Each structure stands twice: as C-alpha cells, then as structure tokens.
Simulated assay, not measured.
Amino acid sequence: MTPGAPDLTNEYDGPCAVCGAVVPAGTGALRHGPTGGWEVFHRDHVREPAPPARQDLPGWHRRRLMALDIATTGNRAAVDRILAAAVRVSDGTTYDWIMDPGSNLLSLAPGKSHGVTIARARAEGAPAPRALDELATVVADHLASREVLVVWFAPHVLATLHAELLRHGVPPLTGRLPHGVARSATRSSWTATPTATARAAAPSKRSPRGTASRTRGRVTRRPTPRPRSPWPR
C-alpha cells in the first residue's frame, strides 16, 4: 500500500480476489482492481504494488543510437552559423568538429554559452565545407541504416544543418537519402522532402519589421511570419 494511504476495510462480506473464500465484513482489505473497481482480500493475500521483474527485453534502446549536437552563433536556422558539432554513438564512437565560419561579420547571440567563440572557431576550425561534408556523411550513413538519431530540439538543429550545407554548396541530408529524412514518433511518422526543406530553410525576403499592406489609403504593418522549419515540433 502507498505510504500514508488509509487502510480501507470491507464493510460487507465478499469473496477474496486471490483464494475466492468469503472475507467477513471488517476483516479484509480493499484495493483498487485492474479495471478501476474495488477488490477485497484476506489480510495475508493483499497484493501490494511492485515493479515488474527485471527482464532482458528487446527494444529501440538496444539499437545503435547516435546523438547529434551543434554549437551555433544563434537560434535563427536560416541565418546563423554552425561553429562546432559533435556526434556520439552508443557503441563508443565519437566525432567532433570545429568549423571556421569565414571572415564574415558574425557575433554570438546573447545567452550562447557553449564555449566556442568565433575567434576560436576561426583559429582552430577546419574549413566549413569540408567539416560539414564529413558531418553530413556520418549522419546520412547512420540514417540510411535505419537506426535512431537522437537530437535535442531537432527542428532547430536539423534545419540549421540543412541551411549551412546549402550555403556552402554541400549536398544536404535530403539529397543523400533516397527517401528523405524520416522520423517515427509515438503516434505519427513524417518525411521531409527536399523541396519543402529547401523552401523552409531559405532566408526570408521580407522586411524584418513586418510586411506593409495598404488598405483604403492606410498603411498598416503585420508581423513577418517566421520561416517554417521542415522538422515538426
């Protein structure tokens, strides 16, 4: 019984849920049954809640898992750059990259505390096209084997990676996999097509302050919608 829960007894005679013998009123114990109703037990037959016995069961947790993470200059998938990336595989394999973002004017967004500065990336990083191609090859090979890719905030990470690959002229994941990039969720599965992915990752051409529209001689502004990510949230 749950610690602190009242010890309920039966007010009427009833059959024991274990042995079937009659339990006199006031001498048994009441517990919730599997269907939501009440069951009565002899005191020495009470079934206390317990975890199931440890078993060696198959499942996704026994498959080859790959985790992907990136360090970026910000949270805008179509604009910000990848400074570093890391891959960890459940078999112990590890990959790390630091990428030179080039000589463009860049700055870290407030709150970015991953520890990879732009100066360090330029000094220690490999050319971005080469590093991105190696990263995309590792991830695409894993996905092609139909294994599980684990990504924290996957819509941002995968959309940013897609935009960076296109920016540097490197084939994206959607171009390396014949059936696109797919994920199976608890209640649904989805596939990102190359066309939709490229359209979503492309920078918006609208004004950052919003889009002006003229209605009956008045100019109003409505907020510019954020580019939709190809990866469901």
Rank of each mutant, 00 (worst) to 15 (best):
R130S: 12
L83K: 03
P127F: 05
I82C: 04
G102S: 08
L65V: 09
R130D: 14
E147W: 00
T72N: 09
S145L: 11
S107V: 11
M66T: 02
S107R: 15
E134H: 11
I118A: 00
I82W: 00
A126V: 14
A121N: 07
A140M: 06
E124N: 09
I82H: 01
A84H: 04
R130P: 00
G125E: 04
R167P: 06
R167G: 01
E124F: 08
L166I: 13
L83G: 04
I70M: 06
E164Y: 05
H162T: 14
A131W: 02
S103C: 08
V157W: 01
R167C: 07
P101M: 07
E124G: 00
L149Y: 05
L135D: 02
G125R: 06
L158D: 00
I70Q: 00
A131C: 11
A136V: 15
R167S: 02
L161T: 02
T94R: 15
W60N: 08
S113D: 15
R63H: 12
D69S: 14
L65N: 01
R120Y: 10
P129C: 07
R146F: 06
R167T: 10
L83R: 11
A109I: 09
A131M: 12
D96L: 11
R88E: 12
L106R: 03
G125I: 06
A159V: 01
G92E: 10
I70N: 00
G111Q: 09
R81W: 06
P127G: 00
A71N: 12
W97N: 02
V151S: 07
T117S: 15
H142S: 09
A77G: 07
H156E: 03
A71G: 12
P129H: 10
F153S: 13
L149C: 08
L108M: 12
N75T: 15
P101S: 07
A144T: 10
S103P: 14
H168C: 08
P127L: 04
I98S: 05
S90M: 06
A154S: 13
T73W: 05
T160P: 00
H162W: 11
M66R: 11
L108R: 08
A123G: 01
A71R: 13
W60Y: 13
P127A: 14
D133I: 00
R146K: 10
A71K: 15
L68P: 02
T93S: 13
A84W: 05
A109S: 14
G102C: 11
T117N: 05
M66V: 06
L143E: 02
L108D: 04
A126R: 14
D69I: 03
A121E: 04
T73K: 02
M66E: 01
D69G: 11
R122D: 01
V87T: 10
T160K: 05
A163V: 08
F153L: 03
N75Q: 14
I98R: 12
A128W: 00
D80Y: 07
A77T: 10
H162Q: 08
T160W: 03
A140L: 08
R167Y: 09
A78G: 07
R76W: 09
D96C: 06
A123C: 04
T72I: 04
D141S: 13
R81P: 03
L135S: 05
R81G: 01
E134L: 09
R130I: 11
A140D: 08
L161C: 03
F153N: 15
M66G: 00
I70Y: 02
P110N: 09
G125H: 06
R122N: 08
H168T: 11
P155Y: 00
H168G: 02
E147H: 14
G115D: 04
